[in-house]
Design a protein around this nucleic acid. Structure first.
Lengths: 205, 205
DNA sequence: CGGCTTCTTGAACGAGCGCTCTAAAATTGA
DNA sequence: TCAATTTTAGAGCGCTCGTTCAAGAAGCCG
């Protein structure tokens, strides 16, 4: 927001976006709590004072990282698939198949940032706990909304529990992220994805 | 091992098993790293010195907790189902259906201890990371072994990837544990379980 | 009883945490 | 040129963490 504005005072000596990217990578690898401010400043090439001036505190920095990740190709593939595919089945099939390839991609830390980071947050930090739980629930709500639309369109039997189906796919995706972190290959994860799709409760198309 | 033996010296003033149970509950609720030794000593009703004398350090205590949990009814239902059910499908069906009821049971912290605790361990502690990864892989190996037996018995098509199928069920179970922690009910989780079973790659029996 | 052994207590250790503060440096508008 | 503003570097704050230690207490054995 406040970039390229009012240029009074000493100019910032580092690239804010690059620093954010470095922080993203670190949080992605280690999770929220396991990443210390000291490691962050080192990876970002700045001193604590600069970090706190530019990003607020560790919590705000992490939230900005998550936000930024959600806009990146790797973080947005779920939303894109839901928007672009004509049927719900096609959307979920694409999500699972893409996840199987993206999650173990060595170009970035394994798995999904939000799932991995969420995974390493303790009960102590209630704020962060709530933030990440809301993120999870928002994802499930988006899944469920798409499935209900499909149900109204006749793609899905009326008896199918859209909430349960959303939770099911959420669980599978989370499991695939974890497996990728444990070293599973794209080939393995693709098999898992195909299996998971077999649970689709109607004739596929 | 060393219980009720050589009774020289001042006798222990607390019940070791009860203390272990208290520690189990705390680790189950909070995860490994989020549980501090201070909280442990308070819950166990002992002082740090006694904890370190009786259990080694925090790491050893946690490993003993996991071991103990694995022998408890709640922790052993997976192994029991695999042993008792005649077919692989029956075994996995029972595992998922029981998990759906056990995980959200308010008689104990939600979800599976090993999954939840594993969830809250950071990359920092390499020892613990390895310990928990081995635990996960051991579980998947057990799944896979049962599935291969089923394949040889003709319960499963030759083409079915037993490794992928094991990873798939592992992912679903992990997802159900997480959902239970997020407040999912037994009814919801049961729906998820039934959906997951629909992925079974052969005629069911 | 007097050793011997083991456990309990409570204080304290060093390390690491997230975060803040001060002073100097770099840029602006007047 | 100079005051105002903003960022930088780097030390250090208070706190919590897992762990240890010294001293005393409580039981055994001879």
């Amino acid at each position: 927001m406040t970039d390229t504005r009012a240029k009074r005072g000493r100019p910032r000596a580092f690239d804010r976006a690059a620093a954010l990217t470095a922080a993203t990578r670190l949080f992605w690898e280690r999770g929220y709590e396991a990443t210390s401010v000291g490691e962050l400043t080192e990876a970002m090439g700045i001193r604590p004072g600069s970090l706190y001036a530019a990003f607020g505190d560790k919590k705000s920095l992490f939230k900005e990282v998550v936000d930024n990740y959600g806009r990146s190709p790797v973080g947005a593939f779920v939303r894109v698939a839901l928007e672009e595919e004509p049927t719900a089945f096609a959307a979920f099939a694409r999500i699972l198949r893409e996840a199987a390839v993206i999650y173990p991609d060595p170009a970035h830390p394994a798995g999904c940032l939000t799932i991995s980071a969420a995974t390493n947050v303790t009960t102590q930090d209630a704020d962060m706990q709530a933030f990440l739980r809301d993120l999870r629930n928002a994802n499930l709500a988006v899944f469920e909304a798409r499935l209900r639309t499909a149900q109204r369109a006749g793609e899905l039997p009326e008896a199918a529990g859209t909430r349960a189906l959303a939770a099911y796919f959420g669980a599978v995706i989370q499991g695939m992220s974890q497996r990728a972190r444990d070293g599973a290959t794209a080939a393995e994860l693709t098999e898992t994805a195909e299996l998971a799709l077999a649970a689709w409760p109607a004739e596929r198309r």
